[in-house]
Write a protein that binds this DNA or RNA. Structure first.
Lengths: 348, 348
DNA sequence: ATGAAAGCGCTAACAT
DNA sequence: ATGTTAGCGCTTTCAT
């Protein structure tokens, strides 16, 4: 009634039935540790032994328990990614490439949403650290000094992305928001625009771009001071609708505006839509520039000028940073500036 | 040199220094299991003991190791979600709500991308099962019978979403693609449209909608048979650009078309864009209906009629299915049809 | 190339 | 209400 007496009986208590490495080893006629080596470091095992273990794995359908492996080896092969929200298209490209790159190296992604506030940040951090991930990829957030301290104290490799902070927690892959915005200002100036304006999300990063844009505009002699560049703020995350509203409000205040820099492509698409609805010609009467170069930007009418951020490259870089660190490889540089590119299309 | 002799020395070997439940217990002057109870089932612990343990946790900055906890209790508090790609906006809303709902119950999301092919499906499955998640949420995929068999054999609760298959692996929350498409056909017919057409992604689910649409059109007397409803296929994932191309091709073949049902809102936005560029009036000359009711649909010009799928509800339902199962609560019904809603706006 | 022993950090059982 | 004991399934260390 109790099945196999020698070892089966002792398993009956907990855990429940799954096939373990021990079962595989017994079937192959080797010790558990040899079976383990056959799976993890096949080079250390005699070919004939290897074959027997593999045969046993195939027969049983054994799938190694990574929880146990992670506990024993202190390597979970889990990487946590924190995004403000997955439901904005901006970070998707990065998360996609991060997931793919990690999977290729045998790592799995854990996703956490911080929201745009720092309220749940602490609980999220606890949940993450509790899993003992081999790395954490941060996108933009981690406002609280306390959170940064805890992460640092945990000893987990951290990659911050989408930005170039002067004082990174650990590793960093991003670009300069200020420089990007300044280059857009120069681009519009070169195109003969003189009445620049901003339609922007109210998050910190976008506002940093706004400052870069306004400062450069002042430098170009387009305003006496930064307050001379009108800004319409809309709540994050941005939508097509908020772009339409933004333009409507902007035109009420500053009818003579001849160029708008939007903090996202969605916002810019809203501006294009509203401009078309009002019969405002783009780009002849109004130039529009977006940010992100999302999939649709090249195909709008007119095609949207924007700032291209290579989210795929960011994700790939972040993955390799963490995998390198986890495998004990030396990381040559801890900070990578992936830059950006102002893509000129029909809308400007 | 060796630090604390009694227990410290034995930790020096592996693991490396983290604070453990044992440390907390010692500091609080209780046994490890009492400390464990103080954290997990505080009701079972005397208030004064509880306070001492909490104090010790605060002093040490202890964060429980969930790998160890999961191994011991056979409950990982990890849930795996599989999506074709995170980089399509369609599933984002669901993933977002799934992540949030799970986090609320103390569960964490692991993300896996299957791609639109079934090549990596097996490796992904192995990675997932290896983590012993408390549940798996599937979106659309799991083509291979072998994969379904392995999942079933693993004993992990499974929720399939976005569809209503007749033979679910386990639990299911979705809606009928065929019914949704049929209702769109009726809607267009009611609006006086007689020359219907489809612009659609080439994935299985979209094509199922196509069949539902065409069959209903035939039933309404709009064509002799399903092949009388023209279809333009574009590759998944869909983009604004492919919508423009789709309409262009469609008009070449069938200039007299007066209504298009698109398999996604992005596609529909492309159709609106191309129509505007060609001076084709929407809806008077051409009606357009999308699918998904993404964030921008209500704000396009004209506003986009579409099929609303409540991704948030799907995610929440899937989460509660899995959490209920994990906590041992009885699940009343294993299949939930969340339905859909045809949202009539300006474009039709 | 293989194995024995000892634990990783935690919790389920079974006391008391 | 608290403690003791025995693992969860794997891998490290140290032998052979």
């Amino acid at each position: 009634m109790d099945g196999s007496s020698s070892t089966g009986s002792r398993r009956a208590r907990r855990g429940g039935g799954g096939i373990t490495l021990g079962d595989v080893a017994r079937l192959a006629g080797v010790s558990p540790i040899t079976a383990s080596r056959a799976l993890n470091t096949p080079g250390q095992v005699a070919p004939e032994t290897l074959a027997r273990v593999r045969e046993a794995v195939a027969r049983t359908g054994y799938v190694p328990n990574r929880l146990a492996g992670g506990l024993a080896s202190a390597r979970s092969r889990l990487v946590a990614a924190v995004v403000p929200t997955i439901a904005g298209p901006v970070f998707m490209e990065m998360v996609q490439s991060l997931t793919a790159a990690l999977a290729e190296s045998g790592y799995q992604l854990m996703l956490g949403q911080s929201g745009y506030t720092e309220s749940r940040e602490d609980a999220l951090l606890e949940a993450i650290i509790g899993r003992r991930p081999d790395g954490v990829v941060l996108t933009g957030i981690m406002h609280s000094a306390e959170g940064r301290r805890r992460l640092l104290a945990s000893g987990i490799p951290v990659v911050e992305t989408w930005d170039l902070t002067p004082t990174p927690i650990d590793m960093l892959v991003g670009f300069s928001h200020v420089d990007a915005a300044a280059e857009v200002a120069r681009h519009l100036h070169a195109k003969g625009r003189r009445r620049l304006a901003l339609i922007s999300a109210d998050d910190e990063r976008a506002q940093r771009r706004n400052r870069g844009f306004a400062d450069e505009a002042v430098r170009l002699g387009l305003a006496a001071d930064a307050s001379g560049i009108p800004v319409e703020l809309v709540p994050a995350p941005t939508t097509l609708g908020s772009g339409r509203i933004g333009l409507t409000r902007l035109l009420e205040r500053v009818p003579e505006v001849d160029a708008v820099f939007c903090s996202s492509d969605m916002l810019a698409l809203g501006v294009l839509t509203e401009a078309a609805a009002r019969g405002i010609a783009v780009p002849s009467r109004l130039a529009v520039v977006g940010f992100g170069d999302l999939g649709f930007a090249a195909d709008t009418e007119p095609a949207l000028s924007t700032v291209r951020i290579d989210g795929t490259a960011i994700g790939r870089r972040a993955a390799s940073f963490i995998v390198d660190r986890a495998e004990g490889r030396a990381v040559a540089q801890k900070v990578v500036d992936l830059g950006f590119r102002v893509v000129e299309r029909g809308s400007s």
